[in-house]
């Protein structure tokens, strides 16, 4: 192949480059998932408490994050910050957008979890003298968590994969790194396979484990 004389082939050091990028993918995903989940649980709780009023306000707002492509959200916010006088890095902008995106998805899940606890089970808890917060902590949280853990894992894995889109802002995460390498080495198939394997190796076991947990948790 004469292409090999122009471009340099895939080298061992490129693996290092990909590994660093994979680290950045993990970093931004873990940040988004952890902060987004906490925020989402609070939002979900607010939705379940405020019911109709909550749906009409917070619910509507969160719905926007779920009804507009993430890539558009990223570009929009990244270009919005300079308008209000902030210059933010692609990493910061990407993280902020991913956090809110995650929280919107988690809010729906969390609300479902709270609603999965029968009203009378909560009444039973309160009739034993538990306070509202004890009821939330000891009854609603564990029961709701089991009911929606698989959905939450689905959201988290989705965010892991969606974090690839932060590359449009120029943040060199895994997918962006692979593009750079492909341009240089002209070995797209190999590189895409390596990158695909990374995502797969992370995502597949987690989805399997939660599926198994879900079966085990059918209250046996």
């Amino acid at each position: 192949m004469d292409a090999a004389s122009v471009f340099t082939g895939f080298q061992f050091s490129d693996l290092r480059f990909l590994a660093d990028a994979a680290g950045r993918t993990l970093l931004i995903s873990v940040l988004a998932i952890s902060i987004g989940t906490m925020l989402g649980c609070v939002f979900g709780w607010m939705l379940s408490v405020a019911r109709i009023a909550g749906d009409a306000t917070l619910g509507l707002l969160l719905d926007v994050f779920r009804s507009v492509p993430l890539i558009i959200q990223l570009i929009l916010f990244y270009n919005f910050f300079p308008i209000i006088g902030f210059n933010v890095s692609p990493f910061t902008a990407g993280t902020i957008v991913l956090v809110f995106y995650t929280s919107a998805l988690v809010a729906a899940v969390a609300r479902g979890g709270i609603d999965a606890v029968p009203l009378n089970t909560r009444r039973a808890a309160r009739s034993l003298g538990m306070t509202y917060w004890q009821d939330l902590r000891y009854i609603v949280w564990p029961i709701g968590l089991r009911a929606v853990l698989p959905s939450w894992a689905g959201v988290a894995l989705g965010v892991l994969k969606d974090s690839a889109l932060v590359s449009v802002l120029g943040y060199v995460e895994l997918l962006r790194a692979s593009q750079i390498l492909i341009t240089r080495t002209q070995e797209p198939f190999l590189i895409l396979a390596v990158v695909g394997a990374f995502y797969f190796a992370l995502s597949f076991p987690i989805s399997r484990i939660t599926a198994r947990l879900e079966r085990r948790w059918q209250y046996d």
Partner: peptide
């Protein structure tokens, strides 16, 4: 289900 959709698109592109 376990890889990013964008990666899948890339695969059908330059892959």
């Amino acid at each position: 289900r376990n890889t990013p959709a964008l990666l899948q698109l890339f695969f059908f592109g330059f892959g």
